[in-house]
Design a protein around this nucleic acid. Structure first.
Lengths: 123, 123
DNA sequence: CGGTATCCTGTAGGATACTG
DNA sequence: CAGTATCCTACAGGATACCG
């Protein structure tokens, strides 16, 4: 049972607010192998728009999940790297991953069964 | 490191799609103590609208996370209860909860520091 | 009681163009 | 390269009213 989930300030709710959006998980995953430049991340997290990547990175930096290092070269170079906080975030993410791999097929089957049941037996 | 997070069908992404929305976690949390009726859930998960509660409950039933049992009495009575799948979902949720309790203050501090740093030293 | 149906709004986020 | 600025749209989700 979760602590006090009906409290808006419940840490778990805050955490879910943070990682609930897909991009965060993907970015943290991408950086788990080591620091990357902006464009590198964009390439790996396929489908993300530049705007959203920028926003998400900034907010992750703000939250102390990763650091941003800009090199005053030409052309510019900016590297993003997980902090220790960000690195140990992969722990709960792994647990999630394991649960998902173990049970998501069951969820999928439940969906299929439900949909079959609730589809008006076409024709 | 997560399995293949850039795949839309990656089970972890699907799971996060599912639990990423706050309400799901709150509802599962509310039901973890035992079955509840619609109105009971609405009362406990404060702030949720009837529409969204209905939608979320239906989709949780579809996913095999919980069951819906309607009693043909007057007035009607409908009970929602976690399935075994739904019950063991609380495992990863607990891990999330623990991470959050351990580290969310660090996140908060990082935010405060960032905001102080990036606030244009008013006045 | 436990919904459904309808309307309405805010906003997340994509596409595009421009810049230090 | 690594952004910012602007415009635009789809849709999540609230409020309200009604129904079996």
């Amino acid at each position: 049972m979760l602590s006090n989930p009906y409290d808006r300030n419940c840490p778990t709710r805050q955490l879910l607010d943070r990682i609930g959006d897909q991009w965060t998980v993907l970015i943290v995953g991408a950086l788990s192998a080591g620091p990357l430049r902006f464009t590198e991340i964009a390439r790996r997290v396929d489908g993300i728009s530049q705007k959203v990547l920028t926003q998400t990175l900034r907010s992750l930096v703000r939250d102390g999940i990763l650091t941003r290092t800009a090199y005053a070269t030409i052309p510019p170079k900016v590297e993003y790297e997980l902090t220790s906080l960000g690195r140990n975030l992969s722990e709960p993410l792994d647990v999630l991953d394991q649960w998902a791999r173990r049970h998501m097929t069951a969820v999928q089957e439940a969906r299929d069964a439900y949909d079959a049941e609730h589809t008006p037996a076409s024709a």
